[in-house]
Design a protein around this nucleic acid. Sequence first.
DNA 1: AATAGACCTTGATCTATATCAAATCTGGAA
DNA 2: TTCCAGATTTGATATAGATCAAGGTCTATT
Lengths: 211, 211
Amino acid sequence: MKSYKSYSPGEPIIWAGDEMRYVGSIVSGVASLSQTMEDGRKQMVGLLLPSDFVGRPGRSHAAFDVEATSEVTLCRFERRPFEKLLNDVPHLRQRMLEMALDELDAAREWMLLLGRKTAREKISSLIYIIAQREADLKPGNGSVAVEFDLKLTREAMADYLGLTLETVSRQVNGLKKDGVIDLLGKRQVRIRDIARLLQETGDDADGGMPV
Amino acid sequence: MKSYKSYSPGEPIIWAGDEMRYVGSIVSGVASLSQTMEDGRKQMVGLLLPSDFVGRPGRSHAAFDVEATSEVTLCRFERRPFEKLLNDVPHLRQRMLEMALDELDAAREWMLLLGRKTAREKISSLIYIIAQREADLKPGNGSVAVEFDLKLTREAMADYLGLTLETVSRQVNGLKKDGVIDLLGKRQVRIRDIARLLQETGDDADGGMPV
DNA sequence: AATAGACCTTGATCTATATCAAATCTGGAA
DNA sequence: TTCCAGATTTGATATAGATCAAGGTCTATT
């Protein structure tokens, strides 16, 4: 019932419309959840990092494309037995509901980014979020990783942010030029000024002013 | 434990950060779920129509603003007893999970719209979706309502679509000029050519070509 | 070490949509 | 009916980001 499978960068894990025989969770690497329009316009709708769940119990066909962005290892369960388990173990269903609600909140945050943020705010937000999630995985130090690998091409970032890859490139280098981040290699980022980065995201920096 | 409350257009139902004493469901009217940035930029992240659930069990404070867009009647339950009910009745938790997953899918569809669609495609998609949901409520005829009230101001539409109200106005009148829709009063819409409208949304019109 | 292909950067230009600024419409209150 | 405030339309202009077009830079392979 349980098995592991690896995928190389760019490899599809499942296409929208395919039958889903498995559900699973990411063990290592980064995968992307995305939609594509007939004319090729593409939008990532989720970034799947280690511990994230893939697939939807109770649905036989995939609604979105899932692709490996970096080298990915997936831990898979056959969907049917998993659904049975879900019925038998109330705790598990509780857990699934929490995950779904967290993802819903994340999706809604992303809607604000896509609909209303500028290109620079979008890039800053993405870097900040990846730094945060990176730090969650390797606990210890502060609450945000200072140096890490983006594990995304400029094109993948563009697809996530609703921009073109050229704009992504310009904005990343803009943040570097302005001393907010350093680039050590194309995808290796060091955050030079975390407060400044947070400010550049356009998000409420200081959690609301009490009157 | 159960009560009803009405709100007039523009009236806040709850603000982000407020304590949530109730969860509830929309009985009639339209409410909006939205986020606002410090400088006033606003993005709607959900449109709440009759039968939609409001609030999140297991969370004590609201994550988003909820406002009545039209006259709204809300059926409220105290949150704590509701959460207890959720623990005792497994069927209810099952239902909540399904609703959360459906909303997640809807949010992800909206991400494609916000990130990649043109203004005209955005407006067409919104009109199409409202027509669909309108038809769901009053079943009978075809699968899509032909004539209905948008129940949203141009500004509310703009906040939902990530546009300005001027652009919304121009695009709505563009669709009218091109014979896709008729306007009977500012918010009353008649769909003149439903196939054409669907095409204008940019979505896969004919459900994918088998090879 | 040379080559190739996938990424990435940079520059010039274009355009969809925002922004600014008036009208104009509309439905309800007096 | 007349008036008014909010909602909508319409026009002129500005601009962020897209698009088009080269080059440059890694990294793996031979």
